[in-house]
């Protein structure tokens, strides 16, 4: 089995007249975490979207196990989980139903696992309420439950701690730590920094 690793070479991306990504490069091995820091508008989200293939960089490439990800995007996508700054939830469905459909599209899921994930993020009490009635922090917790159900090698997280209380931020730390310890990789765009409990973190600063 090949050893998973993510390498990014000299990534350049323009948004109209703006040169957003200016030669970003890094490498990430199993069990390692990259913390992408930078002011608002410095291109953190753009970098994550370029990594997962949603945005097309003008120059440079993203390598997964030594191969350009563009050569086999579906295989790369099967190996990653991307969490944007909005939780991908339907306001008219309950957290349980949301996870059933969202995560079920990627993996087989039984009710016990789903319930365990919801309990883990503290959502068991309101797992039958429609998402429209939940607070932003509660929605974020549901999104984290989804992440916990996807133990794919690479997690790409955009501001995973937004809207969360102290306990919620610790939960993010726990999830990331657990993921790293089982050999996963994490790239997290963070504004305030990851919780202290996460080790083996490398920092990448994007200039505005």
């Amino acid at each position: 089995m090949s050893v998973e690793r993510l390498e990014v070479e000299n990534l350049h991306l323009w948004r109209g007249e703006r040169h957003v990504l200016r030669g970003v490069h890094f490498a990430l091995a199993r069990g390692a975490c990259l913390e992408v820091c930078g002011a608002n508008g410095s291109g953190k989200t753009t970098l994550l979207r370029a990594l997962c293939g949603l945005a097309y960089p003008e120059e440079g490439q993203v390598l997964w196990n030594g191969e350009n990800v563009r050569r086999d995007l579906p295989a790369f996508h099967a190996a990653l989980a991307y969490l944007g700054h909005e939780a991908p939830l339907k306001a008219d469905l309950t957290p349980r139903e949301n996870l059933h459909y969202w995560i079920g599209i990627r993996r087989r899921l039984d009710d016990a696992e789903l319930a365990a994930a919801l309990t883990r993020v503290g959502a068991h009490e309101w797992s039958e309420r429609q998402v429209r009635t939940l607070s932003a922090g509660q929605r974020r917790r549901v999104a984290l439950a989804g992440l916990a159900l996807l133990p794919v090698p690479l997690w790409l997280l955009d501001e995973p701690t937004t809207n969360l209380d102290a306990a919620g931020r610790e939960l993010v730390g726990d999830l990331i730590r657990e993921h790293l310890s089982r050999g996963g990789m994490v790239v997290a765009a963070v504004h305030q920094g990851l919780p202290q409990s996460v080790h083996n973190v490398t920092r990448l600063d994007l200039a505005a």
Binding site: H25, F26, R30, G31, A32, L180, L204
Partner: peptide, 20 residues
Amino acid sequence: SEGTVAQAFPSIDAPAVPVA
């Protein structure tokens, strides 16, 4: 590399967290 972006280079061979 050069440029305005600070780089991070976690070495691939660094002893990562013990992998299960």
